[in-house]
C-alpha cells in the first residue's frame, strides 16, 4: 500500500508516474514527443495526476470524471488527434484503495462492516499513448455521456447509481452508430460491479436491446471471489487497468477484434452525500478496433 513511500498519496503518485513512463517506454517515445497529457484520479484536486504531470513536464490537461476518467481521457485525446491538434497524446488514470477510502469513507483500520453491494477501490494506474498513425489498435468512435441521476442515495451501492448512465450512453452509442451489441466481440463497463452489471442488462432489455455474455464489467473481472470484495472493483484504476492490461492484451492475441468500453463514474462527494443529494453517474464510451 505504501510502495516504498511515506504516504499513500505519494505511493499513488509514484505508481501513476511509473505507469506513464512505462507507456512511453513501450511506445518508444520521449516526454518531448508528447503534445498533451490527459490524466486524472480520485484524490481531492487530482493531486496524483498533477504531481505526475509535474514530474513528466508534458503540456497537461487535468481531468476529473471520477472512475470514468480513463475513458474521458481516451475520448478527448482521440478528438485532439482527430482535430489535428496533436500527434501524440498520453492518457492515464489512477486510484489507490487507501487514498480513496479515507477521502470518501472511513479510516482503513476502522472496524466497519461493508455492505454486500459495496465495491473495493483498485490500487493501480493505467496509461495509453494515442498516436495519429501506427498499426493500431485504433479508436474509431467515442460517445460522450450525459450525467444521469435516477435518485439513488446509497453511497455503498455505486453500481446502482452509475448503471442508468452506462445504459444511457450504451443505447445512445448504438443509436448513433446504427450498430447492435452483436457487432462487438466484447462490451465492458468500467466499474459497476456484479449488481450494477445486472441493472444495465435490465435497463437495456427495457429498451429492446439484448446484452449477451459478451457484455462484462471491469469491476467483476479484476478481483477474484476469494478476495471477498463483495460486489467487485471500483476506482479510476479499475477500468484503466483492465482495459490497458487485460483487454488490449486480448486484442493483441487476436481474441477480440472490436471492443466497446464504457468508463463509468459516480459524481459524488462526501459533502454532497451528507447534504442529502442523490448520486449522479456518467458513462463515456470508446470503441477500439484491433486493425
Amino acid at each position: 500500500m505504501y510502495y516504498g513511500e511515506k504516504t499513500w498519496e505519494k505511493a499513488e503518485q509514484r505508481i501513476f508516474q511509473e505507469t506513464m513512463e512505462l507507456a512511453l517506454h513501450k511506445a518508444n517515445l520521449k516526454t518531448g514527443d508528447i503534445d498533451f497529457m490527459l490524466a486524472g484520479d480520485l484524490t481531492n484536486q487530482i493531486i496524483a495526476a498533477n504531481f505526475t504531470a509535474r514530474g513528466l513536464a508534458i503540456p497537461f490537461i487535468g481531468l476529473y470524471g471520477a472512475c470514468s476518467t480513463m475513458y474521458e481521457g481516451l475520448a478527448l485525446g482521440s478528438m485532439l488527434i482527430d482535430g489535428g491538434f496533436a500527434r501524440y497524446v498520453l492518457v492515464g488514470a489512477s486510484s489507490h484503495y487507501a487514498t480513496a477510502e479515507r477521502q470518501f469513507r472511513f479510516p482503513t483500520e476502522q472496524g466497519v462492516q461493508r455492505a454486500m453491494s459495496a465495491q473495493w477501490t483498485v490500487t493501480g494506474a493505467g496509461a495509453i499513448v494515442l498516436g495519429s498513425q501506427g498499426q493500431g489498435p485504433r479508436i474509431t468512435h467515442a460517445t460522450v455521456g450525459k450525467v444521469t441521476d435516477f435518485g439513488e442515495m446509497d453511497a455503498s451501492d455505486m453500481g446502482a447509481a452509475m448503471a442508468p448512465a452506462a445504459a444511457d450512453t450504451l443505447l445512445q452509442h448504438l443509436k448513433d452508430t446504427g450498430r447492435s451489441p452483436g457487432d462487438y466481440d466484447l462490451i465492458a463497463t468500467g466499474d459497476l460491479g456484479k449488481y450494477g452489471r445486472q441493472l444495465v442488462v435490465k435497463l437495456a432489455e427495457q429498451n429492446a436491446v439484448a446484452l449477451s455474455d459478451s457484455y462484462t464489467d471491469c469491476g467483476t473481472l479484476i478481483f477474484d471471489e476469494s478476495q471477498d470484495t463483495h460486489a467487485g472493483g471500483s476506482g479510476c484504476a479499475c477500468s484503466a487497468v483492465v482495459t490497458c492490461g487485460h483487454i488490449l492484451d486480448q486484442m493483441k492475441q487476436g481474441r477480440i477484434k472490436r471492443f466497446l468500453g464504457i468508463g463509468t463514474g459516480a459524481l459524488l462527494s462526501p459533502c454532497s452525500c451528507q447534504q442529502g443529494e442523490s448520486i449522479p453517474g456518467i458513462g463515456h464510451a470508446v470503441v477500439i478496433d484491433a486493425g
Binding site: A115, S117, F150, E152, A160, Y195, L199, L203
Partner: peptide, 19 residues
C-alpha cells in the same frame, strides 16, 4: 424522470443483495 426513477428504484431493490 419521476416515473422512470420510481421504476428504477424497484429494479434496484430486486437486484440489491439483502444484508
Amino acid at each position: 424522470f419521476e416515473l422512470q426513477k420510481r421504476e428504477y428504484k424497484k429494479m434496484v431493490q430486486q437486484v440489491k443483495p439483502k444484508p
